[in-house]
């Protein structure tokens, strides 16, 4: 019995030593060094592979970071904290980041903007655009076929009443939706800017009013009641100047006659209520 035990111990330790030596030998003479930093950086990245950094995925971005081909703040999703950590890890310095969120600059839901024709085809904005510009009577409004909502890797876009609405608390500002929208309605704006003019149509007020209840008719009430430079007049519409945006009180002060100058919260509220009304009916 004892002999068996001793033999087993001997055999196994012998095997262990031989294998250990063999592995050691192999790694010593044939080993290839890899950079462990890549894995460390990858752990700090969000790992959702949204492509906001214009690279195919987080792993690729991490490799580029370690190779010095990219800088951490190019990841629009990472928090300031994470970016700083990555920068420290790589021995870089980064400037202050401004958090951005997306906003859909259209207020024309199915109640406000007429849907002119029946549409029969793929439920996708880009596809619908290819057929006579889609069914909505406003040629510049939200088509409401949720292409952006499907594209959003964070589920931050909700379709309410056939209108895309961004939830600020979920949006990280990666910008995927901006590229998706065939009507270029989505903009990345500073998260601090809470007031928007929900209209993107460059058409004349008369044309807009024919098809929509809530267009920006460029009456300039907001421009007059706000400070200099807070708004920009672009042809037949007004846009918030996001480098110098007004505070939330501007909504009260200006009294937009068409109700298209709203805070993000008000906008969401309106759409929610309209939805409820519809359900109640």
């Amino acid at each position: 019995m004892l002999l068996t035990i001793i033999l087993s111990i001997l055999a196994l330790s012998g095997l262990g030593i031989i294998l250990g030596l063999a592995i050691g030998f192999v790694s010593k003479f044939f080993g290839v060094a890899t950079d462990p930093k890549v894995d460390l950086v990858l752990e700090l990245l969000p790992g959702v592979n949204c492509g906001g950094c214009s690279r195919p995925g987080c792993a690729d971005f991490a490799r580029a970071l370690v190779a010095g081909e990219a800088s951490p703040e190019q990841c629009p999703v990472s928090s300031q904290e994470a970016v700083t950590q990555i920068a420290q890890l790589l021995g870089m310095t980064v400037g202050d980041l401004e958090k951005k969120v997306a906003v859909v600059l259209c207020g024309g839901d199915i109640h406000q903007t007429k849907v002119k024709t029946l549409y029969n085809g793929v439920n996708d904005c880009i596809s619908a655009m290819q057929i006579a510009g889609g069914p909505k009577s406003c040629a510049y409004g939200c088509l409401g076929m949720s292409s952006c909502a499907r594209a959003c890797p964070f589920g931050a876009i909700e379709m309410i009443n056939g209108l895309a609405v961004v939830h600020n608390e979920l949006c990280v500002g990666c910008g995927v939706c901006v590229d998706t929208c065939p009507r270029d309605l989505i903009k990345l704006v500073p998260a601090e800017a809470k007031v928007h003019i929900y209209c993107s149509s460059p058409e004349k007020a008369a044309v807009k009013m024919k098809v929509c209840n809530v267009p920006c008719i460029a009456c300039r009430k907001c421009v007059k009641s706000g400070e200099e430079g807070q708004f920009e007049i672009k042809g037949f519409r007004v846009e918030v100047n996001y480098d110098n945006f007004p505070g939330e009180d501007i909504v009260e002060k200006s009294g937009c006659p068409k109700n298209c100058l709203l805070t993000t919260a008000q906008h969401l509220e309106i759409e929610r209520n309209a939805d409820k009304e519809e359900n109640a009916v």
Binding site: T117, L118, Y119, N120, G121, S127, Q130, A132, G134
Partner: peptide, 10 residues
């Protein structure tokens, strides 16, 4: 009148 016109792909 164009009210019943359907938009669909070819």
């Amino acid at each position: 009148k164009g009210e019943e016109l359907v938009l669909s792909p070819s």
